[in-house]
């Protein structure tokens, strides 16, 4: 029910992001979505891509500090307020969300989030019949 996301340790000004992008390009791995947040010294560059496991191995082999993390990817209809309604389901169940980002793919919205309460999150998704992206869908998503 979750997908693998790459989390890369990226020092500011170190050129890590460019290297990661080049390595993925060479490996013919497509980026579906990415986001970066930063502190004063470093950032975590998070990537959803077509073949996360292979991407992870490629980056590791190149000496990049990278982590493979399970995140939820919920598919939303392209309607106003859908994101608000969906998040409410989780917050009403007292599920803490560590971080969240979203993007549009075709005419659907995709909501990516990470939580430590993944069992509870699973339940919410099943009970409310939410659409989600599974790991095997990633390669055909684009």
């Amino acid at each position: 029910m979750t997908v693998h996301q790459l989390s890369v340790f990226a020092e500011n000004k170190s050129g890590t992001i460019q290297r990661v992008l080049d390595l993925l390009k060479e490996g013919n791995i497509q980026i579906i979505a990415s986001t970066i947040a930063d502190t004063t010294d470093y950032g975590i560059y998070r990537i959803i891509c077509s073949e996360p496991t292979r991407a992870y191995e490629t980056l590791r082999a190149a000496g990049i500090s990278v982590n493979l993390t399970d995140v939820f990817a919920i598919i939303l209809e392209n309607e106003v307020g859908k994101a608000a309604d969906t998040i409410k389901l989780f917050s009403d169940a007292d599920i803490d969300i560590s971080y969240l980002y979203s993007f549009m793919l075709g005419n659907k919205g995709i909501l990516i989030f990470r939580t430590k309460d993944s069992e509870k999150a699973h339940e919410i998704i099943i009970l409310n019949k939410l659409n989600f992206v599974a790991e095997k869908d990633l390669s055909t998503l684009i």
Binding site: S7, F9, A37, Y42, I44, R46, S65, N67
Partner: peptide, 14 residues
């Protein structure tokens, strides 16, 4: 030097 990216969490790094 960070040996490995052992987490995806800013809090843990900090």
């Amino acid at each position: 030097e960070l040996n490995d990216m052992f987490t995806d969490d800013y809090g843990r790094l900090q």
